[in-house]
């Protein structure tokens, strides 16, 4: 844990504290953005930073010796926006700024590779059906998305893969004054990219279960506390470092603070199960911090 804290980039901490100081409180991320903006003509934007890093080497589900010091770190800052044409139809975009590095072994020699820049743009069209009940509200959604290859593939560890990919997501969320739950089942169809990159298709399930222990009606401010469980399975594929794919389940706590139209979300997840194809560096623990606003 101490090593994890040391590895959190100083820039992330400074940006988060700055954002909180500027907005008073804050917010962000997909599940809560899922509930807003539900109003006609509503729109929202958020900045979200994902960080994951590891120097654990895995062979299948076993940790193996990493004498060459293979490691990987990926920092992704997502710029996200959403527009609600009407309650049943939204349009969204996500554009990542990626800063990443890794150590791979070539001919028995460890080599550091790194790249940074704008990654692949994701455009989505959430189609939703809402039901408002006496003391709760729920919705189901089908979201087709496309990931277009806007990221560069020039580096050895490129921020883009040069492929156009397709996603289909089915989600359900339900909330009452004191409880929140969210389920998202999705499938990525990953097509063949450049430089021999051919990621396998990916299926995933995200579950958020949470409590809403505090809300003040007069200030419209409050707190959500949730548990996030994320499961991923990616088919065997290949990137510029070798074999990709495997199965991973991560879980961890989520804290959401909101005030009026601003929300701050932070989460910390650790892999509780990981089984990789071949020998790969572990995904590692993940920190996610976001700040969003809706209008």
């Amino acid at each position: 844990m101490n090593s994890l804290v040391r590895q959190v980039p100083t820039g992330v901490v400074v940006a988060t504290l700055t954002a909180m100081a500027v907005t008073g409180v804050a917010w962000a991320h997909q599940p809560v953005m899922d509930m807003a903006p539900r109003w006609e003509g509503g729109y929202g934007a958020q900045v979200r930073h994902e960080w994951h890093s590891s120097d654990d080497l895995k062979d299948g589900d076993s940790k193996v010796d990493n004498s060459f010091g293979r490691r990987r770190r990926v920092d992704t800052t997502w710029i996200e926006g959403i527009y609600t044409l009407k309650r049943e139809l939204r349009f969204s975009f996500k554009l990542p700024w990626v800063d990443q590095s890794r150590v791979v072994v070539r001919n028995g020699i460890p080599i550091r590779q790194a790249d940074s820049g704008w990654g692949d743009l994701i455009l989505g069209m959430p189609l939703k059906y809402y039901r408002n009940l006496k003391n709760s509200s729920w919705n189901v959604a089908f979201t087709p998305s496309i990931r277009v290859p806007t990221g560069s593939t020039s580096a050895d560890f490129p921020v883009g893969d040069g492929s156009t990919d397709f996603n289909f997501s089915f989600s359900h969320s339900r909330e009452a004054a004191g409880l929140y739950q969210y389920y998202d089942l999705f499938y990525w169809v990953n097509t063949r990219g450049k430089k021999g990159i051919a990621e396998g298709d990916e299926v995933g399930l995200d579950v958020n279960l949470g409590l809403h222990p505090y809300h003040n009606n007069l200030t419209n401010a409050g707190v959500f506390v949730m548990l996030d469980v994320s499961a991923r399975h990616k088919d065997r594929g290949v990137d510029t470092a070798g074999t990709t794919g495997g199965t991973r389940i991560s879980t961890g706590p989520v804290l959401v603070l909101y005030r009026h139209n601003v929300m701050f979300r932070t989460e910390f997840k650790v892999p509780v199960y990981e089984n990789v194809n071949g020998t790969q560096v572990s995904y590692g623990p993940e920190v996610n911090v976001g700040l969003g606003v809706v209008f």
Partner: peptide, 13 residues
């Protein structure tokens, strides 16, 4: 109002 259980979600209202 049915379903008003989250002030952030009802900001538009």
């Amino acid at each position: 109002v049915k379903g008003v259980v989250c002030s952030f979600c009802a900001y538009g209202t």
